[in-house]
């Protein structure tokens, strides 16, 4: 149990550190690699929270697909003066204040939600985080939202193709 706690605190500290490095690095490719470290550590936290399927999806979809997509775009675009220009806007102290305020607000809000466990409707069988139960939920009560998610992804594919195509180009 103590080992699991130590691993959790390592994962938490490493995700916060790599998140901070990701938003402050000058080179976009380095930022992307720190975001990759962040995603992998968050996947580890998912494992500790007994969300195995979520951890797998995090590694496959986030780290494997979305982040590689971002890296491709960073490397495809010609960003000549990215290293020379300041990486932050002039208003960055204000942005830092907003970030800290958001964190504090979320921290204060947890006092309101944490005792809510007894008030939520009981779903019957105890949930152990197994993939089978998640699948039953996904294809049972959440079947319609699941199908809608595929529609959202289809719209995104079509939208990305339309946006990235050259103007007036016939396919």
């Amino acid at each position: 149990m103590l080992t699991a706690q130590a691993v959790f605190y390592y994962m938490a500290a490493a995700s916060v550190a790599s998140g901070l490095l990701a938003v402050t690095r000058r080179n976009p490719v380095q930022s992307m690699l720190w975001v990759l470290a962040l995603f992998l550590h968050v996947a580890g936290i998912f494992l500790l929270l007994s969300a195995e399927f979520l951890a797998a999806v995090q590694v496959i979809v986030y780290a494997g697909a979305i982040l590689i997509f971002y890296l491709f775009v960073v490397m495809l675009l010609d960003l000549p003066d990215e290293e020379a220009k300041p990486r932050f806007g002039k208003h960055w102290p204000f942005a830092a204040c907003v970030g800290v305020a958001t964190t504090l607000l979320a921290w204060l809000a947890q006092g309101a939600v944490a005792p809510a466990a007894g008030r939520l409707p009981d779903t019957g069988a105890a949930f152990t985080g197994s993939v089978a139960e998640l699948g039953k939920a996904l294809f049972g009560p959440f079947a319609l939202p699941f199908e809608l998610a595929s529609l959202v992804l289809l719209a995104a594919i079509v939208g990305a193709v339309v946006l990235a195509r050259k103007r007036g180009e016939r396919t």
């Binding site: 916060v16 998140g19 938003v23 204000f94 942005a95 958001t102």
Partner: peptide, 24 residues
């Protein structure tokens, strides 16, 4: 867990508001 989540969210907010690069 909520504290880690709140800190990460704050980092994301800071990054979104402060960075000048649209991809970041």
């Amino acid at each position: 867990v909520l504290a880690v989540s709140a800190i990460l969210f704050g980092i994301g907010v800071f990054g979104f508001l402060a960075r000048r690069n649209i991809i970041l």
